[in-house]
Amino acid sequence: MNRANMHVWGWLLLLPAAALLALFTHYPALATILHSLYSTARPNRPSRFIGLDQYATMLDDPVFHQVLWNNTIFALGTIPASIALALLMAVWVNDRLAGRGFLRLAYFTPTILPMIAVANIWMFFYTPDYGLVDQIAGLFGFARHNWLGSRDTVLGCLIVLTIWKEAGFFMIFYLAALQQMPPNLAEAAALEGASRWTFFRRVTFPLVMPTTLFVLINAVINSFRLVDHIVAMTKGGPDNASSLLLYYIFEVGFKYWDTGYAAALTVVLLALLAGLATAQFLYLDKRVHYR
């Protein structure tokens, strides 16, 4: 094949995928910025340019502040816990403990279930009186509690459910990393008389650090991307106590049909994700220099 053909065929092969990516990823990401500068079209009032008015509204919108705060709490509540559990699970499954087949099955199964199905099951746990949580709490003499109906507990309930759903998924990445670790490391450590904890702290944990960063980035993306359980369990309530940024976008865009404001909110979400991408890029850059 000559050089000119190389260019032509390369582009032709790429074209179908590139066209779809442009239409459903790049175009909407840019269009949402443009649309956030216009008012929402109403039957009696067409859309018009309003500059940064949507963003001014946003700064004064208590619900926006609330969902950002909720999203922060949700991320801080789910990410460290599910990563720590994932690493623990991976070490155990990798370690040929008795019944590791069952262990792996038990840890991983929540991952392949639809979030919406999982949310339905967990909703029953949290039901006042009849629910499993209240029944168990009742055995220890605690009073009934409306777990999903109370501002204080609703976000915590969603956090617990999300950790349960995600830990097994992240375990897989750690398992892959652990299986690539040279076995003679453990043998050497044993000869030195190192305890398992020392070995984990000084050898395993540093070696799986790249995996931890990879998982961390995925976990952060997930905390902004996944709101299925909110639709099923709380609809963001009570009083927006469990609403996250994407759920708020969904509400504004498809319940109130205020697409202009929803576009502005999407810009904030995209800015957060772009910031994350930049951080990852800078980190990867650094890692390349280290080698």
């Binding site: 459903f24 990823t25 909407p28 949402t32 991307r225 976008i249």
Partner: peptide
């Protein structure tokens, strides 16, 4: 770019 900005978050524009 799509690894970070997934279709999941572009619901408003993609609906349009």
């Amino acid at each position: 770019v799509q690894l970070m900005i997934m279709p999941d978050v572009l619901i408003v524009e993609n609906y349009r």
